[in-house]
Nucleic acid binder design. Structure first.
Lengths: 282, 282
DNA sequence: TAATTATGAAATAAATTTTCATTATTCTCG
DNA sequence: CGAGAATAATGAAAATTTATTTCATAATTA
């Protein structure tokens, strides 16, 4: 925990003199980090040893160490945090808030990912005869993106955002096929059914969803991506971006696993697009 | 600027001994903040006054002050930077790198966005009779996502990722229509044509693309999103995520502009999905 | 009122900075 | 090119500043 919060938190447990220092620190931490122990003691009208004891009480090694902690708390001024858009925000404000929330959620998502599961997913994907990506609504976008990426790998890959097509495709799957089912909540009935059908037909089912959800239960491998609830404006926002980053991770793992030759191929795919583009003049 | 970056930046301008300290600091800044000036001097095989002079050179008041700055630099974690995936990275490593690069690029994109342009775009979008989103390849995913969002607003909205459909749609556009054309490079010939056609037919064309690109020249409004080049593995990665965040911003701006009543409507749309979902037990 | 805890003055210790002499480097001019 | 003056860089030691410990006293609690 941030040392400033800690001070605020333990304010009641301090002795009279300690509280005096605490208050001085809380009221202008920015000044304190440049003050000597003598200056701070004077400002708080207490003695230097008391300041020193105060520092130790907060699990620091002494005054200089305490200042270090304090400086770090202050530096963390604006870590990326989920900040909610407000009715009266200007364009500048809501733009910042959305970007920050997105970053905060990516950070969260990153922490929640398990490298072992990613490794296993990559294993499975590299060995697949055919890869299918299924999603609905916002998750359809993620599936669509996955198609775009994996399509370049010259692997049979399909993507459906239509319930019926998904069902039919799932029913027709067979051993060696991999089905990636994407749903943030993991509670969309038809998708859960699709996952279950694919599994019954011997496909390996990878779920990009919340751990413990009904969908997760139907999957062989669950890639769970934690993000804060998408409360803003009732639209999925951060969750899909975290999922997209995960797709990038899987695609990257795939190419790394396939080796150098394979990556030269990728370059060819990219170059093949050149003629459809205006040349760069620089 | 972060003092660590500053040290790295000015490395050439240092004297021999100063460079020694600099290197020790850069290689393990976390240790240094807990070291005394004597310890650091010894570690770098130089004298204490040299360390002191080094600190002053970096515009700090002395060694303790320098440590404070250093601590603050460290507090911000490792600021998100573009780190490229390496051949031999483990799953853990490439996952981290991809997430970090993504966040770094979001930060970049955020800085490059102009609130005025966003405001104008939102103005135009809220007044549109019909909104079209066009993109190809990776940008089709972004257009797809935009459809998903704007569809909820109960506005006529379409999305095409097919060149011919895009052309036809563009030709049929009329005054009051808004066409949003998405392309990171802004050099895809057919999309530039589509933009130009739409403009000729009196639609307002908003481009989500790089400033100064051929596409940008055909647009009435250019929302330029700067990101570092997508060099990794020859696939668009960061650019599309920045674009998606921008779509979030536009959608948010849209709902804010439309007012409270409108947002209640959104909630209804969301609630209408409930029956297709498994209930949450908690 | 005794026991405990909190506090500060003074002494000590530690760390940092300054001073200054020495050494290394760069520049100038023959 | 090279000697030597000028300048800059460096470190040893002293001085100073800062932090910590010790211990006696005051305040609080039991």
């Amino acid at each position: 925990m941030n040392i400033l919060e800690k001070i605020a938190d333990e304010l009641d447990t301090f002795s009279k003199s300690e509280r005096k220092v605490a208050e001085v620190i809380l009221s202008s931490p920015g000044t304190v980090i440049h003050a000597s122990i003598a200056a701070l003691a004077k400002q708080a009208n207490i003695s230097e040893p008391t300041v020193n004891r105060f520092c130790r009480r907060l699990d620091t090694k002494g005054y200089p160490d305490f200042k270090l902690h304090l400086a770090q708390s202050l530096a963390n001024g604006t870590p990326y945090v989920n900040r909610h858009v407000d009715e009266n925000d200007t364009a500048d404000e809501y733009t910042d808030k959305i970007f920050e929330s997105t970053m905060a959620n990516l950070e969260l998502a990153r922490k929640s990912l398990d490298a072992n599961v990613i490794n296993r997913s990559v294993d499975v994907l590299t060995q697949a005869n055919k890869i299918s990506f299924f999603g609905l609504g916002a998750s359809a976008v993620v599936a669509h993106d996955a198609l775009n990426k994996f399509f370049r790998f010259n692997v049979p890959v399909v993507y459906f955002d239509d319930i019926l097509m998904q069902r039919m495709s799932a029913i027709n799957s067979r051993q060696g096929d991999v089905v990636v089912v994407i749903s943030h909540t993991g509670r969309t009935k038809s998708l859960v059914e699709v996952a279950s059908l694919a599994k019954e037909n011997d496909a390996i089912v990878i779920g990009i969803t919340t751990a413990g959800s009904p969908l997760a239960k139907e999957c062989n491998i669950v890639l769970s991506v934690d993000v804060a609830e998408d409360t803003d404006l009732y639209m999925p926002m951060s969750s899909r971006i975290a999922q997209l980053a995960l797709i990038d991770v899987l695609a990257t793992g795939f190419t790394l696993r396939r080796g150098t030759k394979f990556r030269e191929n990728l370059k060819k795919v990219k170059d093949s697009l050149r003629s459809s583009r205006f040349e760069r003049k620089d």
